[in-house]
Every structure is written in structure tokens, then in C-alpha cells.
């Protein structure tokens, strides 16, 4: 019990464990990561290539079971530099979250932009532009996890 101003405040921590089934699509997608490959799937009907790979097209509501290895290069659609930190956040600031349109795909892939100094927002603003070409940089050690890609770095 914490005393703040006039009345008590009860502090508590709620921690709840879950174990979430990956299912065939995530399993295969992350297997690809272990081999430094990014997979997408194509919708049978609208022919859009969606990445990450998924089992159905949200719009056509049909299966998207044609697997395609996707280019590891793409261009930045949008980005945001995060400067603040809070409890429960998996990535430490500063970091740049970005939407990236990987070449040959029809959706935007969400990941980080990095490989240069992020400490100065003005420098970041001058460096990162929408439409800029970027390429995936992989971590040496693979865990079958979205962070097996370390970040996307600008293509020189």
C-alpha cells in the first residue's frame, strides 16, 4: 500500500501466461526466417501478394496458399522515430518503426529501420525518406522469430 495525498493506493502486478499456437502458416514463415528467406502468399482471386505469409485473403475471403519467396529489398512507405519508453515494450528506444513495401508485394511489411546513428532526430529526419530503398539485415543467430531480421538498412 502506497500513500499518495490523502488516500491509499494499492499497487499490484498482473502477470498472465499464454501459449499461442503458431499453426502451419506462421510455422512455415518462421522456418523461412531460419534460412534468411521472407515468404509471402498470393491470393487465388485478387492475386495480391501479402507478406507476412498468411492463409487467407481478408478481402476476397479465399485461401492464399501459393507461397512465394519475397525480395529482401523494398522501399519505405512510412516511418516513425520512437523516443520514449514504457513498461512492457519489446524494443528499446530510440528505434524507427517503418512500413516497407517489399519489391513485388501488395502489402506493407512492418519492421525496423536501422544501421545508422539514431540519437539525433534531425539527422534521422534528413536520412530517412519515404520511397527510400532498404534491405533486410539478418541476425547471425536465428530463433524462428520476427526479430531474426535485425532491421532494414538503407541501400547505398
Amino acid at each position: 500500500m502506497e500513500k499518495k495525498s490523502e488516500y491509499d493506493i494499492l499497487t499490484d502486478k498482473v502477470a498472465i501466461p499464454y501459449e499461442i499456437a503458431a499453426g502451419p502458416t506462421w510455422t512455415r514463415f518462421f522456418e523461412g526466417f531460419r534460412q534468411e528467406k521472407i515468404y509471402g502468399t498470393r491470393c487465388r482471386k485478387c492475386k495480391r501478394v501479402l507478406v507476412p505469409a498468411r492463409s487467407f485473403c481478408p478481402r476476397c475471403f479465399v485461401d492464399t496458399d501459393e507461397w512465394i519467396e519475397i525480395s529482401q529489398e523494398g522501399s519505405i512507405v512510412s516511418w516513425a522515430l520512437t523516443e520514449y519508453e514504457y513498461y512492457g515494450m519489446p524494443t528499446k528506444p530510440p528505434f524507427i518503426g517503418a512500413l516497407i513495401r517489399l519489391d513485388g508485394t501488395d502489402s506493407n511489411f512492418l519492421h525496423l529501420i536501422g544501421g545508422f546513428d539514431l540519437s539525433d532526430p534531425e539527422f534521422v529526419r534528413k536520412t530517412v525518406k519515404n520511397g527510400m530503398k532498404v534491405r533486410a539485415v539478418w541476425n547471425k543467430e536465428k530463433k524462428g522469430h520476427i526479430m531474426d531480421i535485425k532491421y532494414f538498412e538503407p541501400v547505398k
Binding site: 512507405v77 516513425a80 520512437t82 512492457g88 519489446p90 528505434f95 512492418l110 519492421h111 525496423l112
Partner: peptide
């Protein structure tokens, strides 16, 4: 921190910094 639990842990949770992250990307675009 609650907002991070709106975002699933396979993919997006690592990149969306609560609410401001996505709104910044949206307005920037």
C-alpha cells in the same frame, strides 16, 4: 503498455510503440 497487448506477439508487437507509433506513421505518410 496496455496498447502493446492489442498488438499480437508474432509480428507487429515489436514495432508499434503504443498508440503514437502508428499515428505518427499514418500522418507522416
Amino acid at each position: 503498455a496496455t496498447m502493446t497487448t492489442v498488438v499480437e506477439p508474432f509480428y507487429q508487437r515489436y514495432f508499434i510503440s503504443g498508440a503514437p507509433g502508428i499515428f505518427s506513421m499514418q500522418s507522416q505518410q
